[in-house]
Each structure stands twice: as structure tokens, then as C-alpha cells.
């Protein structure tokens, strides 16, 4: 599902003394079948941008095209009619907010997951079936179906909440900090889940602060800073560009930090060959003239 964003601007509190320019002239073109990361400091505009993708926010200026959906922030008359089609867009772009476990409210897990599909007019039986499929995908088994969401552990709740979005059968799944507050093991399980969802044919856009995750999972990474898109490159290209990282206050994974430090202190490493810990070790060995 291609996305094309052109000259997108967004202001919070427009026409008041409290105006804040959250997005400034965003241009972005995204193709098909992707697993991308969206990164940037807190307040760089990531969340604002992401909320435009399912029309929770409407652009102050500029346009967004997502498949057949067209969001036109330049046409003020359209504002009134904007509700038309928004609902359909929301089923095409599934948005998982930070700490999604807080949005659970139904009596039992199955009902909660079926809540989304029911809102989009799907018949009860079918919605229940979709809910079961989604729960199955996120690794929540039958024994949980009739339990109250509040009885579950933190990680389980989050899985159920994510199943609630997957049940909308989105073509693009947007995840805002989905691993926040999880321990390293939970984090890995969660990321593997998204990889699986991606392999089932869903496009994934992942908003994160965790550079190790970016390195390990993202095909490309969109870097935002002060409301602008600064880079749209592969993680390796990004982390090897230390000068740029300094300007946006992003700290690369330790591998790259260590490599950079060694190079700056005179060790002859080729940054292009380094992508993870074993390759760093092998480069160090090469420069030291040692081989396996």
C-alpha cells in the first residue's frame, strides 16, 4: 500500500499565541511491502506524522495519498466532508498507540478483539472468527478467550491489544513504541511477532527509540528532527554516518559507537564492513593482523 505525502504541514493550536509547528514541509514516498522504522527525538514530530496516516489529525497544509484515499489539507471545503471515507481509511491503516494495553475494556479478551471489526460493520459471528484468528497470530490461545483483560499479565495484555488492531485487517500496521516498558525477552518476542505479521503480507511502520531494534529489523529508516524528515535510508547507512547522527542527537547502537571511537583513535577499521558484533570483531582482528 503506497503512501505519498506532499508538502505536509501541521500546527498545534493554530492562530493562537501557543501555536507550535509540529510538521514542516514533509515529503515522503513509500512503496509496497515494507518494514520501516520511524525515529527521532521526543518532540520531533513522529507521533504527529503517524496520526495523519489514519486521519486522526488533519493536515494544516499539504496532501497525503494512501492507495485510493486522498487527504487534502489544502482544500478547506473538503474539511467538512472529511469524515466520509475516514472510517475506511482507519481500517486500512491500523494504528497501535504506546502502551496499547490501556485501551482494553470489554468483559473478555475475545469480545475486546472483536470490538474493532464490529465497529466497521462486520457481523458478530464473523468478527468473533476474525478475533480468534488474530489472537492466534499474536500467540494467545483459547484458554484466554473468556478471561477478563485485567487478569492478564502486562505482556499478554499488550498482545491482546495488538490483536485488536490486527483484527481490522489493516494493510499498513503503524506501531508507536510497541516495546516500551517490556523486558529484553518480551521485547524480542514482540519484535518477532511483528516480523511474522509482516511476512503475512502487512506493511509495518515502527516508531521507536531503540536503535538496536532499528538495526535488526528495519529495512529502511525515516529520521525526523524538529518536524522535518531528514533522512530516509537503510539502518547501516544511517549508523555509519556519525556526523549526521550528532546533528539529530541520536545515539547509534554500541557496535557503531565503539567502532567510531576506535577509528577516531587511529585503529584502521572499514566502517562499511561493520554491521554487527561479529563483523566488528573480525574488522578489529583484520586491522591487528590476526586471523581466525
Amino acid at each position: 500500500m503506497p503512501i505519498k505525502i506532499e508538502n505536509l504541514f501541521y500546527d498545534y493550536n493554530p492562530n493562537t499565541p501557543f501555536v507550535a509547528h509540529a510538521l514542516k514541509d514533509i515529503n515522503l514516498e513509500i512503496g509496497e511491502n515494507y518494514f520501516y522504522a520511524l525515529i527521532g527525538e521526543t518532540g520531533s514530530g513522529k507521533s504527529t506524522l503517524v496520526q495523519h496516516l489514519n486521519a486522526l489529525l488533519w493536515p494544516s497544509k499539504g496532501t497525503i495519498r494512501i492507495d485510493e484515499h486522498f487527504i487534502d489539507g489544502n482544500n478547506k471545503k473538503l474539511q467538512k466532508k472529511k469524515k466520509k471515507g475516514v472510517k475506511k481509511l482507519r481500517s486500512h491503516v491500523g494504528l497501535v498507540f504506546q502502551f496499547p494495553e490501556y485501551q482494553l475494556f470489554e468483559k473478555d479478551v475475545l469480545k475486546d478483539v472483536a470490538f474493532g471489526p464490529r465497529n466497521f460493520g462486520i457481523k458478530e459471528e464473523e468478527a468473533i472468527q476474525i478475533a480468534k484468528d488474530s489472537l492466534n497470530l499474536v500467540g494467545i490461545d483459547e484458554s484466554y478467550y473468556n478471561r477478563a483483560p485485567f487478569e492478564l499479565s502486562g505482556g499478554e495484555k499488550r498482545r491482546v491489544a495488538i490483536a485488536g488492531i490486527i483484527a481490522l485487517k489493516p494493510k499498513i500496521l503503524v506501531l508507536d513504541e510497541p516495546t516500551a516498558g517490556l523486558d529484553p525477552l518480551g521485547e524480542k518476542e514482540m519484535m518477532d511477532l511483528f516480523l511474522k505479521i509482516h511476512q503475512n503480507g502487512t506493511n509495518v511502520i515502527l516508531v521507536t527509540h531503540n536503535m538496536d531494534i532499528v538495526l535488526k529489523y528495519a529495512e529502511k529508516v525515516i529520521v525526523m528532527d524538529k518536524g522535518e524528515v531528514k533522512r530516509f535510508v537503510t539502518p547501516l547507512e544511517l549508523f555509519q554516518d556519525q556526523e549526521f547522527l550528532n546533528t539529530v542527537a541520536i545515539e547509534p547502537p554500541l557496535v557503531f559507537k565503539v567502532a567510531r571511537e576506535l577509528i577516531d583513535n587511529g585503529l584502521n577499521l572499514d566502517l562499511k564492513n561493520i554491521s554487527d558484533l561479529p563483523s566488528l570483531a573480525s574488522e578489529i582482528a583484520k586491522s591487528k593482523g590476526e586471523t581466525k
Partner: peptide
Amino acid sequence: LDIPFFQRLQDELQKYGI
């Protein structure tokens, strides 16, 4: 549980005799 970066690096470099 994960293993800290420098511990892993030490382990990797051991393979090269460093």
C-alpha cells in the same frame, strides 16, 4: 538474559586470539 556488549566482544575476539 542478554549478555553485556563488552563481554560478548571479549568472547568474539577470543576466537581471533585477541
